[in-house]
Amino acid sequence: MNTRTHPSPETSNRAYAVGLARAFGGALLFALPLLMTMEMWALGFYVHPGRLLLFLALNFLVLVGLSRFGGFERTASLFEDVLDALAAIAVAIIASAAILTLFGILTWDMKLDEIAGKVAIQAVPCSFGAMLARKQLSGGDTSDDEIQAERTAGYAGQLFLMLAGALFLAFNVSPTEEMILISYMMTPWQAFLLILASIAVLDGFVYALGFAGQRDRPQGISWASSFVRFSLVGYGIALLVSLYVLWTFGRSDGIPMAQLAITIVVLAFPAALGAAIARLVV
């Protein structure tokens, strides 16, 4: 009945172990800047716990999605994606707890609440890195990449990737005080220009600049249509993700509407970049 021969358990375990090791590498690569950011150490205990929980749950869903489009192991079913997402979280929590302990940021006399908050918030970028590691740190083989490309080609898949990329980059810069400071220093005119620049960057990265993984504009669709369907929608995603991240970190509380709008635009700039890059690299 079984015509395909499976690799022996030893070799598949070995291959999986290599994947795990890569995942640790990816977690470090992606999360080290945040592990070394002072605001991130404090966020763990002053972020609203309900919002943190929601963020962790959302992160898990994004991980499952990313696994579909290129986790550290080829997956055949949604169940396997869930397993991969859990493994990525295991790697992320262990890696961030280890590094934070090594840095002396986590100490033994800390309360469990504080430790959990600190590790949980750092586990988000770590898990992203762990999940993307396979794709980025290994060659990948072509036959599987075709299957993956098929999955990625759908419009919903594209939107999801943009969301994941926007979330990662927005999360990367949002903990710092500078996001708020920049929005105070900008005039509305500069904010307006930044919106145009963000959209241009989003469109340019994907279609114009000739990076590896560049996409041709979909055939039979006019420039305007692809611009509206991908780049403009992508910027919309970047805006929403920015608002969500600001809300999660409590940065949107008690800020007047106009100020909040400028802060969102500031954060949406890196988010748009993330959205564009995600479509190239994942």
Binding site: P49, F60, D84, A87, A116
Partner: peptide
């Protein structure tokens, strides 16, 4: 049915335990 390597089950299990544990601590606080 593809046979997942044992290590995959172990690491997913660890992930599940860690996730639930950390969420329980934060949830209790919430």
């Amino acid at each position: 049915p593809p046979r997942e390597p044992l290590l995959e089950w172990i690491s997913a299990g660890i992930g599940l335990v860690l996730t639930l544990g950390i969420m329980a601590v934060i949830g209790r606080e919430a």
